[in-house]
Amino acid sequence: MSAATRTKLLPGDPQLDKADEGRPAGRSNFLVEFWRSDVGKKWLMAVSGLMLMGFVLFHMVGNLKLYLGAEDVNHYGEFLRELLVPILPRTVALWLFRLGLVAAFAVHIAAAASLTKTNRDARKVPYKSERDYIAANFASRTMRMTGIVIALFLLFHLADLTWGRANPDFVRGDVYCNVYYSFSRPWVAIVYILANLALGIHLYHGGWSLFQSLGWNSPRFNPWRRWFAIGFALVVVVPNISFPISVLTEVIGPCP
């Protein structure tokens, strides 16, 4: 008598096909458990995001020394290499930071990729009519895109100013001149500015979102969370964008 079959979803239904396979019984290491759970992954994204935010902030502060002149910048660069000497040999502290950053990037990107798959699977049949979003903004809906832009730019940025492969005038250790010569090429300046805008958009959502993911929520400071994100994005992005503009408009003088 029944032609239609009953679609009843139970946990573990293959129809659901989530990114993570079924959870093994029992408790394992809490980091492993974090990784298995979407909420945990978001927590890891927030923590790694905070580390990366710390990095972009200090990176920007360091770069501000461009306005003080070549000597100050290069001195600062040398300071970083000398950090914690003689507790640690030269450049070791810097490398430890770099490793931490690489790990943060890796966790951030891997979690994002895995959650993206999860979220796509959670709505395999999309809406057939046009959605009218109310709260979701441009920033929140383009996190994936801005993230990819930032990651690609990062590779170029490293090739340009750390490894020197993308900068014909590269001189290891001469931070000021490397920056000056790089930004003197207008296309690099434009790429740099666009990437920083992407970073600003990413931070506008991420700088707010991390509070939710970490569960930092209290009526006392909730209204400040959005302002923090806006403030942080501006504090990082505005000075960053000023560097190529200053080079092109010769506010930052030529390489001595």
Partner: peptide, 8 residues
């Protein structure tokens, strides 16, 4: 009667 499938 199952309202989704009509099964009795």
């Amino acid at each position: 009667r199952d309202l989704l499938t009509g099964e009795i």
